[in-house]
Design a protein around this nucleic acid. Structure first.
Length: 762
RNA sequence: GCGCGUUUAGCUCAGUUGGUAGAGCAGCUCGUUUACACCGAGAAGGUCGGGAGUUCAAGUCUCUCAACGCGCACCA
């Protein structure tokens, strides 16, 4: 009885109440942060890991600075933090590097919308004022995101935090651009681009989504004199036709190939040449295709093959540039109605059919994409690169995965990856927006002969522009030299920088090494690159994963990461995508943390969720792991109370039935250590949960409490401490809180912060 | 159109190289308040999407069909 009272006195007061996550999480996080152990350098200098220990590094996929954290972010943070904590406890030199993404179009769009509401626009307030607005918003979002990230318990090294648009990253972007330009991989060219009339910018092929809609197929003749009919879904574009393509073997039209026809079409003078092209399907429509090079990718390709002229009839606002009254100046949809009415009144229309058609939408603005010819900056993915054994960017990207240097989990995504690369076309990297890295190209107006200027923008020039970090310096600080005419000391006004900004994924592609100090050869770069794992959502495999492999293999000659671990989407409890339209099932991570604790949320997202798998998340599931937190809490209470005096450094004689329990655990820890290294967290979390509850609590504690002696007490304390350690990567807060309350004799010489204790050895 | 994936208990999912089906949650019955009601014990619940094949043996391998989901491409 005396013994009992003494033990009771040692039990911290807090264990007499259920576990209260809200009262401990913030202080635990600041304990970690103050320790400095998020930073691998501190770990090395304090002996947490050997200075030359194997590195383990992850760069955090930078959240967009467009708002707040959602469940997708929580999932990514939970998985990565688990990996990071596990590796840190294994004594690796562990770096998890945080940052945020400026997310060019998305962020710019937020402000553009605000301005529209305020009845003004970015053009009215000007580039400078606009940028100030965007930067203020980005800063605000950044701060919110950082504080929410800390709530998840993420053990990120904040001292190395990066932003895709900060100064060091700009240097990386400009250096990369310059090198690609000098290698002939970046070029300026006229092409059909995906034009977003709402965002007033181009977007890349990957930023275009397709949606099936009802449409009509119109079959008609251009004019009464024209010998046959064509079919199209967009009659208004026919004002820009320059040819009619037929299959060269099509008996119906063979005789017309090579003939030229001129006529007036809905108020526009049109001249078309009939050409034969193998790509035309004789079975489709009438077998004759009106070729509109300026407003269709396929037609542009045909025009290239046959050297046809191109005639733009739709402008950047998706309005008609030519045509009769009711057509010219109208939006394309209105113009279509007018052209159809005209065709009918002229008796040219032969047939109107209802069809399903996939239309192209801009991912960010949801505007219908208007294909337009534009001068843009491109990355050539098919040009052999001397410095890389004559391989093309496409080949570099394929080889990285094919060789196994990069492994993708789950492996089925490797097929998706190959499929995408094989169909890859040149990458359009310039955007006509303001928020982002300005294209690092300067045009020198005193030396260069500018041939064409339109809207104050240089359209063409006779000498190469100056590409690179900054305009070449002259003798004085604010004066610059021109490499072409050798003039020096020219004031900055003589140079004008390209107006466009770069696709946000250009800077994201550099992320694994721009964050480590590239282009300088820093220690970080040598130690932590290639990074160990990239953990991200499978929806950005092309946008990001592929671009990182492109940039890293080209610029550094090594892969950016060895393993890609893709997580799925977080769905609501009904298996539906969480969205603002049904808020009743959507989970707000901050709310869940408040209600059930971060550890419970993390477990709910980890248990049973393999790579690539979607997580159906409802309150019930999170609640179940709050119960688990409490179970751990109470079992700890029992062990401290009844076996807390045991010194774990001196192992007493263990009875066979207790040794059997220890053996069971040691078998388990060997098994799960292996599984952790194979990224099977979903299995490990479940096994730990199960062992703790249904073996340790239900059986072992029940057995041991019958007879508390050295053997049973040692067994209890030993198994508790082992499990607290192995649960730490999954449930960092409660395990650390327990560790902080554990008597020293149970810590067995380990450090006083669990985060840097040793992972149990089997 | 091409490709990928999923289909196992009411729900969410495990099931490793083929050897008589498992867990969590929910529900049901009973119990317990000196670690824990954010608890314990117990029972119930499945012709493993359909069909065919290989095999002594198939949830697992092969083929085929179907439903659902996802990705890519797209024809004017």
């Amino acid at each position: 009885m005396l013994q009992f009272l003494l033990s009771m006195a040692e039990l911290p007061e807090k264990f007499t109440k259920p576990y209260d996550s809200t009262s401990v999480e913030d202080s635990i996080y600041s304990l970690w942060e103050k320790s400095g152990y998020f930073n691998p350098d501190t770990c090395a200098s304090d002996g947490v890991c050997e200075p030359d220990a194997d590195p383990f590094s992850i760069v955090l996929p930078p959240p967009n600075v467009t708002g707040t954290l959602h469940t997708g972010h929580s999932l990514m943070l939970a998985i990565q933090d688990t990996m990071v904590r596990f590796n840190r406890m294994q004594g690796k030199k562990t770096l998890w590097l945080p940052g945020t993404d400026h997310a060019a179009i998305s962020t710019e769009n937020v402000i553009v919308k605000q301005l529209t509401k305020e009845k003004t626009s970015k053009f009215k307030i000007g580039r400078k004022a606009f940028m100030e607005r965007v930067n203020a918003f980005a800063q605000e979002s950044h701060d919110t995101i950082v504080s929410q990230t800390k709530k998840m318990g993420a053990s990120l090294d904040w001292s190395r935090e990066a932003f895709t648009l900060d100064e060091p990253r700009q240097r990386a972007v400009y250096t990369a651009f310059e090198q690609m330009y000098n290698d002939g991989l970046i070029y300026r060219g006229d092409r059909i681009v995906n034009w977003d009339p709402k965002g007033q910018t181009t977007v890349s092929d990957d930023e275009v989504n397709h949606e099936e809609r009802d449409a009509k197929m119109y079959t008609f003749k251009y004019s009464a004199d024209f010998p046959f009919a064509i079919a199209t879904t967009r009659p208004e574009t026919k004002l820009g036709d320059t040819a009619v393509a037929v299959n060269p073997n099509d008996e119906r039209y063979k005789q017309y190939i090579g003939q030229e026809f001129s006529f007036n079409f809905a108020g526009a003078d049109v001249t078309v040449t009939v050409i034969g092209d193998e790509h035309v399907d004789a079975e489709f429509g009438t077998g004759a295709l009106g070729v509109t090079p300026a407003h269709s990718q396929t037609d542009w390709d045909i025009a290239q093959r046959h050297s046809l002229p191109s005639k733009q009839v739709i402008n950047e606002y998706a309005k008609m540039m030519v045509g009769m009254d009711g057509v010219v100046g109208e939006k394309t949809e209105n113009a279509r109605t007018a052209v159809v009415a005209w065709l009918e009144s002229e008796g040219l229309m032969e047939k109107i059919e209802d069809i399903k058609q996939n239309i192209s939408l801009s991912e960010r603005t949801k505007a219908i994409i208007e294909p337009l010819p534009k001068t843009q900056w491109w990355i050539d993915v098919n040009k052999p690169i001397e410095a890389r054994e004559g391989k093309t960017l496409k080949e570099l990207m394929l080889d990285a995965v094919r060789s196994g240097d990069v492994g993708i989990l789950p492996d089925r995504f490797e097929k998706t990856y190959f499929n995408w690369i094989e169909n890859l076309r040149d990458w359009n990297i310039s955007r006509q927006i303001w928020y982002g890295h300005r294209v690092p190209v300067w045009y020198h107006d005193t030396c260069q002969k500018i041939e064409e200027v339109e809207n104050n923008k240089i359209k063409s020039f006779s000498l190469e522009p100056i590409v690179g970090l900054f305009p070449p310096k002259g003798d004085k600080e604010d004066q610059f030299g021109c490499p072409h005419c050798q003039a020096t000391d020219l004031p900055l006004e003589h140079f004008s920088q390209d107006e466009d900004t770069l696709d946000t994924w250009f800077s994201s592609g550099l992320w694994t090494f721009s964050t480590l100090g590239w282009p300088d050869e820093t220690d970080d770069l040598k130690t932590f690159h290639p990074t160990s794992v990239l953990e991200t959502g499978h929806d950005i495999i092309f946008f990001w994963v592929a671009r990182m492999i492109l940039m890293s293999t080209y610029l550094l000659g090594e892969v950016p990461f060895k393993t890609v671990y893709m997580h799925g989407m977080v769905l609501d409890k009904n298996g539906k995508k969480m969205s603002k339209s049904n808020p009743e099932t959507a989970i707000d991570p901050l709310e869940s943390i408040e209600k059930f604790g971060t550890d419970a949320l993390r477990m709910a997202m980890l248990v049973g969720v393999g790579p690539g798998q979607n997580v159906a998340l409802g309150d019930d599931k999170i609640k179940a792991y709050r119960k688990f937190s409490n179970k751990i809490w109470n079992a700890t209470r029992f062990v401290i109370e009844n076996a807390g005096d045991i010194d774990l450094n001196t192992k007493p004689e263990i009875k066979p039935e207790h040794q059997e329990f220890i053996n069971q655990w040691e078998t388990l820890i060997a098994e799960i250590t292996g599984e952790m290294n194979e990224y099977k967290f979903y299995l490990v979390a479940e096994k730990l949960y199960h062992f703790f509850w249904h073996t340790f609590a239900d059986i072992i504690i029940e057995e041991c409490k019958k007879d508390l002696n050295d053997s049973s007490q040692y067994t209890l304390s030993y198994l508790l401490v082992q499990q607290i350690k192995s649960l730490h990567p999954f449930m960092p807060f409660i395990t650390e809180e327990i560790w902080q309350s554990l008597p020293d004799n149970l810590k067995a010489g380990e450090r006083d912060i669990l985060m840097v204790a040793n992972w149990p050895k089997s």
